[in-house]
């Protein structure tokens, strides 16, 4: 039978051993801790900046390819030849078949796309289901007339040099919202709100910033309404 003191003596060597272990392994654990931190940090940065945007967006091909550059050489009135303002001042947006038919009642050139367009859409009287890169949510009020006619802005300021493109890029859309990637921008720095060109990113903050810069005030020029109500009427 051992006494209480004996037990204490028996335990002591174990305690010493435990202490020495922790001292011996101290640097190793700290190293691991830092290593794991770095792994976690790097991996999540990688996921957040590289993987996540890839997962968030999906690509679709436009129903037909379209050569803006070539059409621009054929029309007299620049962008407004096809993307025109109606008599009541509203903006027509993407041309309807009715406008295309003016020239493309029959195949004009030798491109496969045109032949496909005439066969699949013109002859059947069916509208082309274009995917619109700059489509805005229904809750946003945007007047092209106010920007183009009143503020005399160029189409390029917001839409970029699409008029010089020879083919249509794939339509990338957000899997959650369904809206085009062009709104958020493609370059990683656009994610931080940084951009080189106006059209790199067209989120509502960008609208607000431009409005502030150009007009010097937050309110709408026409309605005098402030803040959210400039666009969300």
């Amino acid at each position: 039978m051992s006494t209480v003191d004996d037990k204490a003596n028996e335990i002591e060597p174990f305690d010493n051993k435990a202490e020495s272990t922790s001292v011996n392994n101290g640097n190793g654990i700290a190293g691991f801790t830092i290593l794991f931190f770095i792994i976690g940090f790097t991996a999540s940065l990688f996921i957040g900046w590289i993987v996540f945007p890839k997962l968030l967006y999906s690509k679709k091909k436009q129903p037909l390819d379209f050569n803006h550059e070539m059409h621009m050489t054929l029309v007299k009135n620049g962008c407004e030849s096809c993307h025109f303002f109606r008599e009541d001042g509203t903006y027509s947006g993407v041309p309807k078949l009715a406008q295309c038919i003016d020239c493309h009642q029959e195949v004009q050139g030798d491109t496969g796309n045109e032949a496909l367009f005439v066969e699949k859409y013109v002859s059947k009287g069916k509208e082309v289901p274009w995917l619109i890169y700059s489509r805005q949510p229904d809750c946003v009020f945007f007047s092209h007339a106010a920007h183009i006619k009143l503020a005399k802005m160029d189409c390029e300021t917001c839409h970029g040099h699409i008029g010089q493109s020879t083919s249509l890029k794939p339509y990338e859309y957000n899997l959650i919202t369904g809206y085009s990637r062009d709104i958020w921008g493609k370059n990683p720095k656009n994610y931080l709100g940084l951009k080189t060109n106006t059209y790199d990113r067209m989120k509502m903050n960008d609208c607000a910033a431009c409005h502030m810069e150009e007009t010097g005030r937050k309110s709408s020029v026409s309605t005098e309404k402030d803040g959210c109500f400039v666009c969300h009427k």
Binding site: S44, W49, P53, I176
Partner: peptide, 29 residues
């Protein structure tokens, strides 16, 4: 050398910090 729970906590903290500095949470929101 042993991987213990502190390593996993550290991994988690690193992941959280990295995520916060990535567009993921803000873009999702």
């Amino acid at each position: 050398m042993k991987i213990d729970r502190r390593c996993f906590l550290s991994l988690g903290i690193g992941a959280t910090a990295g995520t916060a500095l990535s567009p993921l949470p803000w873009k999702l929101m």
